[in-house]
Design a protein around this nucleic acid. Sequence first.
DNA 1: GGACAATAGTTGAAACTTCAAGGATTGGGG
DNA 2: CCCCAATCCTTGAAGTTTCAACTATTGTCC
Lengths: 174, 174
Amino acid sequence: MDDNKDTAGTAEWVDGETKVEEAPHDHGDEIRLWLRLLTCTTLVESEIRRRLREEFDFTLPRFDLLAQLERAEDGMVLGEVSKRMMVSAGNLTALVERLVESGYVSRTVSPKDRRVQIIALTQAGRGAFRTMADRHGEWIGDMFKQLSARDGAALMKELGKLKGSIRTSLTSPQ
Amino acid sequence: MDDNKDTAGTAEWVDGETKVEEAPHDHGDEIRLWLRLLTCTTLVESEIRRRLREEFDFTLPRFDLLAQLERAEDGMVLGEVSKRMMVSAGNLTALVERLVESGYVSRTVSPKDRRVQIIALTQAGRGAFRTMADRHGEWIGDMFKQLSARDGAALMKELGKLKGSIRTSLTSPQ
DNA sequence: GGACAATAGTTGAAACTTCAAGGATTGGGG
DNA sequence: CCCCAATCCTTGAAGTTTCAACTATTGTCC
């Protein structure tokens, strides 16, 4: 409907056709694509944040952290969590601290290397996460409902190509 | 390559095929799609934040705000900016304050309604934004470089459908 | 005209986020 | 053994973000 709304999150400064022909390399198409991608992500993410808060009084970062731990039966080194979640280690300190306080996560110093912390889900954490994850799945399913299986598969594929392009750009200096 | 990395940002708790057949409505495909979407967005957004900081000592929220104002020649009511950026009004107060301090944005009380604030780009703000926006375009162009025009167009289209699906879900109660 | 609801922003508390600096620990030469 | 670089994590400062409560202003209904 209103592609004006694509401006949300970042901008719309090349959305009008005005500036498009001026510059030699304007990247207009790429930017429109980026803005649309951003809009979709923002819409979904905001809704998930809102519902997590509303139904479970929980935040998305905490949910994400539990999600990382769920598959690691024996816990996970903090640094590994940091990499997987793509957030800084400094960020995790406080996050883990709160989850330990609430009894969802345990924290142990590695006996082999006392710099290293191993964190793991407690039974309570596992149960709480399962409940929330089920609802989370329903929310996503609902928001993606109108997308046919074919469209979903196509989108998955195209996003795969985009991801490849981005990663290449990030690993090669310029 | 490594779809493990798709776990970044949110989770990978249904990425292994383990849990997929258990639940009646598992939404596994939708969640995988969502995680991939999130990964792409996070990768791009982090890189833009990093470069804005590095090259211009500027933050993404500020850049986004300037971008909103750029097309509004006569300025914009604060509430309108809030809607377009999809952020709360409380958020904008501090953001605008800093941009006013740095001389990039002007703030005027509307003569018709003294509750209303109109904010606009200054000349300095316009110039600074142009410089940054040009670089921003190059960064995006670089990250999307490997995506062919055909793939880009297809992605744009599929994302359009997804956006429609999300919006529908958000407007209808359940 | 005056009470009163609605609207526009601000403020304060809490949480998340990053970066830079610092502390603790480990591992490797000399 | 001791210094020293590297690694893992914490701390502190600054910024962004939201929500809820509040102020100021406007508009409406009696």
